[in-house]
Amino acid sequence: MDLLKGKIALVTGASRGIGNAIAELFAQNGASVYANARKIGSLDSLLAKCENSSGRIMPLYFDVTDAAAAKQAVMRIKKESGRLDCLVNNAGIMPDALIGMIDQKVAREVFEVNVFAVMELIQLAARVMVRQKSGSIINLASIVGVNGNKGQLVYSASKGAVIAMTKTAAKELAPAGIRVNAIAPGMIDTDLFRSVGAEKVSGLLRNIGLGRLGKPSEIANAALFLASDMASYVTGQILGADGAALV
């Protein structure tokens, strides 16, 4: 399948987990993928995995909270490729804390990464997409941004903001032919999720209707749909991908 043949995409947080799976699947589907990560060299394995794909991976190392660096990155894409068809705002952090234990400094960091960086990249990408009168922006939200979750006040608030931004940006950018959607994953088998501990993970499995964690590739499939022309009339939607999880 080459659902993204000839398309230019930017995927943030692509060194591991969901972002990694999205970048890989996009390249397998013919896209030229600018894959972002902070740590230089952290995209080497992704590059190796995609060596024989019909698309390609181009590493873009920058911190999404660095507005100047984000601007340079989009400028580079514009110069090299002349367009940007898809932006996937995936980079995010998830430090959990019960209400009484929330550190304001950490809370601000969460919003810098999960909200303000997303806002900045939407603005930058929209400037390129408006010119071409097309584009797809996909934001990674979360089931907890919809339902909330104990111990995740800050994270759920940040993802709730992502959902609201998605709906508003979709309305504002629709006249320019730009679609904006979000994916709200449930419990996905990533390093980030596993970091809560094996015992907690097995307890959480009981809350998932499908009886198992989701795979990063299953979220990537949802992103592929939203990025492709298959979703040409889909905008402003929050696509749950949670295996009927109860949170």
Partner: peptide
Amino acid sequence: IGHMQLIFALE
């Protein structure tokens, strides 16, 4: 939207 188009054109 026109403003974004203008910005792009100037850039």
